[in-house]
Structures are given as structure tokens and as C-alpha cells.
Design a protein around this nucleic acid. Sequence first.
DNA 1: CTGAAAGCGCTTACAG
DNA 2: CTGAAAGCGCTTACAG
Lengths: 345, 345
Amino acid sequence: MMPERADPIDKRSRPATLRDVAQLAGVSIATVSKSLNGRDHVRPETRERVLRAAEKLNFAPNSLAQGLLTGRTGTVGLLTSDMEGRFSLPVMMGAEDAFGTGSTSVFLCDARGDAIREQHHIRALLGRRVDGLIVVGDKTDPRPSLGHAFPVPIVYAYAPSDDPRDISVISDNVGAGSLAAEHVLSCGRRRIAYVSGDVTYAAARDRVEGAVQTLGAAGLELLGGEALYGAWTEEWGRGAIRTLLARFPDLDAVLCGSDQIARGALDALRESGRSVPSEVAVMAHDNWVPIATQARPPLSTIDMRLELVGRRAAELLFEAINGEGRGGIHSVATKLVTRGSTALV
Amino acid sequence: MMPERADPIDKRSRPATLRDVAQLAGVSIATVSKSLNGRDHVRPETRERVLRAAEKLNFAPNSLAQGLLTGRTGTVGLLTSDMEGRFSLPVMMGAEDAFGTGSTSVFLCDARGDAIREQHHIRALLGRRVDGLIVVGDKTDPRPSLGHAFPVPIVYAYAPSDDPRDISVISDNVGAGSLAAEHVLSCGRRRIAYVSGDVTYAAARDRVEGAVQTLGAAGLELLGGEALYGAWTEEWGRGAIRTLLARFPDLDAVLCGSDQIARGALDALRESGRSVPSEVAVMAHDNWVPIATQARPPLSTIDMRLELVGRRAAELLFEAINGEGRGGIHSVATKLVTRGSTALV
DNA sequence: CTGAAAGCGCTTACAG
DNA sequence: CTGAAAGCGCTTACAG
């Protein structure tokens, strides 16, 4: 004879419904609903009884039913093109964080930069009746707009949409370049070179532009008259430094397009017998913590505040869901992080 | 006089329902449902008419309604403790990827290692009637089981549950240590040291254990009789190498607990005038690509195949959802990646 | 203050 | 082959 399955560990026990709670509390399901949702017109002691019953049954309302009824699901789609990307991740974290504290849940989709896959995911998300969409890019270059034929609002984060009517949030790369230049100027440097990354990246060009502007305002220009563009690698950082030292033996600061480039720069400077920061200051971008802090010396760098980009995107999406969409590009200010590579002389 | 809103760009157009399709096709909603779901008992030309109508209205079925009815939502919760973690991310990617090809969507939740937040997220996920849960850890040490009082199955990935009845997927760190040791042995090295990471991490100890076993089988032991434990940093890698070179000037290989430690080791070896790999081979763990490939020379390392861990977790969860739960720890084999730091002499 | 009823959008027996 | 009806779990006017 089989023992009865009274095991509370039974994984497949059906979740409690309003009906179960109503039965236990001896009231109607309407009353349970009102009690649980804090509606008026329920006697305090009835409400109390209902709450206890719900507690005992470990009742959690079925969001599907609620969503079906109210038209709001409290879910949002996060469409990323590259989960490996160091840049899209913090943005995702910021967004998840901003939503997570409330009652909104995030659907994660990785399209791998494939437009077909992206369409597939969007269709699935729309089928799940998300209240909105955040599209996270992995580089700062504008991406194609998804258009406006959607039943829900869309916010683009990190990579802005190429349609100015869309809502986009980016970090301010021009401002970042300015900040970097300002910092080395304030450290008393005047013979400043720039080793940038891949010239096809908007982020590379924007950061250079900011630096050039700021130097210009101080009556200076970059050593050699322009930035050296190359690759986002340490190797390029090393090679560029060797070239620069040959041409400008008296350079006293190097602005680098990324932390990785800066690490290469540090290595090449050390191997050329230049001491950092006393002879040459090195300034980086991105604040990729494991890279920046493990460098010798640790890197001063510009933090792009990507979590803030994600958080801002979440907020703007929320507003748009509530009908207050504000198209255009919203730019998040970056932040200087000083470490040993630029310490004042 | 207001123009009529026939604008297809209207963001707030209500998504089409079965009823809309039925009306356009001139049939009942039951017939629409059957046609769309490929059920029998529909005349081909009727089906065709329905399909065209659905197409024209850009119909996507409301998953909420489907879920409410069928009891399956086609959603899964991914609970991570640390989205910054280099380790939990690839696992998430693998899981998302495994699901993404099907019709399952993933809810992403970051608990930040906070048990309260974790409970909060679990409650929300259960309210959304996910079909199952994947719990992703950020280190390989066993984590507390969430218990068995859940209406849905749970799979633990990367960090196993401390309850052996739970389903866990990990990468094989002992095997990884063996692989690393085998490789340097096959490169003809015999005087082998081990610079490990933080001894409080199971991953650190397991990798050492695998290496010691393999060396033992070859009649060897580690230089100094045991591994040097320290921190997961380049600085520790540099310091440990200096210590080792002083004690064992003739060492010909170093196994490192991580890519970062190995980079430190490379730098210290170079600065001590040892050439890698001709004099000393350096072998790492993790295959953190930007670190490993940018090293001088690029690092041979053990890839933990974390995407595979995530993928396997997704598969096991799927099985468990279908009632074929297989408790215990499932271990994923690691993979040797050879680069310049160990090239055969 | 409380409850019966309608309805959100779908699927599935069950009649016709 | 096609459609009317019930029902998934909830919320919200509307009666009582």
C-alpha cells in the first residue's frame, strides 16, 4: 500500500490560488483580492484573517493572471548584442538593479549581433507582453533604429539609435576625453601625446576630440599635432610608445584610449627606463578594474559610469511606459579615477 | 478638425488578439487557435486563410494567456550572485544560449550575494510562474541549498549546492589541474612549481590536487613539496616567482592558479632574465582571453568551458521540468589551450 | 462590508 | 470540418 504523499517537500505541489486562500479564510475570492491589494471596503478583522490565510498557504499572486487583466506585466526586455562585452555588461547590471528594487523583472536576450536573432527575440518578448525594451549595444557607434512600429517603448543604451526621435542613453565620451586632458594639465604636464584605439570606433574619436578641445583651450596641442590611432591592445600601446619616445624624447604625459593600451604604454615606458609618473604621466580610459588596478603603477583612468547609463535607461523606459517619453540622446557624465600613474610630481 | 489616427507608427496600438484574427478570417477563435497551432481537423484552405489574416495583423499569441491555461510559461529564472564576476557571466551566456534557440525566455536576477535579495527575487520569479530556476554562483565553493520546498526544479551552476540531492553542474577543477600538469610534462619539464591563488577557494585547492596527482603518477612532486598559495593577483604571481627562483634556480615550469597570477609570473621571469618558454614554461588557468592573449608570450591555459557548464545546466533543468530530474553533481570536462608560454622546446 | 459576475486572451474537450 | 462553452487566476465595477 502506497503511503500518502503528505510530504511538504513535494516539488510539484500546485501553488496556492486566490480560491485556496478564500476557502481557508472563509470569504469570497473578491474579498481576498481586495484585502491583499489594500483596497478599501474590507473590515480590518476580515483583512487580518485573509492575510493570515495567505501567509499560511505561502500565497504568491499569479502574475500571468494579473498581467492578462491589467495589461501591465511588470516585465521588460533587455536585448544585448554581446554579453561578453565588457561594456554592455555593466549597463545591463545598472538596468537590472534599477528595476530589481521595484517589482519589474527583466528578460535577458543575447542577439549576438545577429539581426535575425534580434528579430526572433523581439517577437518572443512582444509575445510575452513586456512593458518595454532596452537595447544595449557593445560599442558607442550609433546602431540602426528598430523603428517605431512597436506596441511598447524602446530605450537604447550605450549604443544610441541612429534615429534622433528614439530615446538613447550614452556615456559622454567627448567629456571623458576632456576630463583626461584636464587631469594631466592639472598635474603640470605640457608635452602630451595621445595613443588612441581603433579609429573606426566613435568612442576612440570622441575621446580624442574632447582632449584636443581641452588642450586647445589651454593653448596647447597634442605632440605630433594629432593622436596615434591603432588597435585596442597592449601591443599597440607598447609600439606606439616606442615610436613616440623616438620622436619626442621629452614627452611628459600620455593619454591612452583604453586601459589595455595604457598597460602596454606602461610596460614600454618602464622598459625604456622612463619612470611613471615622475617623468611621464599615463592616463587611461574605461576603469576596467582588474586591468587598471593590477598595472604597475595602478592606472589613473576615466570611469564611464556604465551602471549609471543602465540605470538611466531603466528610468527613462519607466517614464516612457507611463507615457512621458523623451526622445533624444541623454548623456551621462564620466568620472575621473586617480591612481598611481599620474600622481602629482 | 483632428485628422484620423491611421498612423502605423502609433506606439500604443493594441496587439492583435485571436478574436481580431478570427474576425478578419471569418471563422471562430477556436478555429484560429487550431490553425495556428497546427492541430488537425482544419480544412487546408481555412488554415491558409487564417494564416494570412494572422500575418496581416502581425499576430503574436499572448504568452500570458497561454501560460495561464497550460501551466507552462516557457520562462526560467536565472539567479546570479555576481554579474560582474568573470565566471558567472559565461555560465549565464551558455544557459541563455541553450534556451534562446528554443522558445524559453530567461529572467535575469542579480542577488549581489545577499540572501534577503535572493529570497525577494525568488518570490518574484515564482509569482511569474517560471518553469524552473538556475542558480549561478561566482566561485566553485558549494553554496547553501535553497531547499526542496519549491514548486519548480532548481539547477545549481558553477557553485554546486551543498545538498547532494540537488542538481548541480560544475567544471572539473581537479581534472583541470591534471590537464595542466600533463601538458608541461609532455613539454619535457620535470622541475615544476605551483603558484596558486587564495587557499580558501575550493578551485585553488582542487586544481593543485589534480596537478599533484598527475605528477605523482609520473613519479614527481612539486618543487618545494607543495604549492604556494597567495592571492588571485599579478602581484602575488611576481612575488612568488622571485621566491621560487631564489630557492630553485633551475626550475623549468610554473603552474599558475589563474591567468592573472601567470601574468605576474611572466613579468617576474622576464625581469629576472629567464626566457619563456625556452627556459621556463608557464601554464595558467581560466583562459580569460584578453589577459591570456595579451601576455608576453601569450599564455597557455586551461579553459574551464563555462559556457558548457551553463548549457548543461539548461539541459538538466529542461529534463527536470519534464520530470526527469537527476540529482548529484554533473562535472564538465575542461580543455587545454596552448599558446606561446609553453611551446615545445 | 461582502460576494456574484464579467472578462483579460487563450486552449481544449465536446457537440453539431 | 467548425464553433460554442468552459476555464486558467486574477481584478473590478456593481449589487446586495
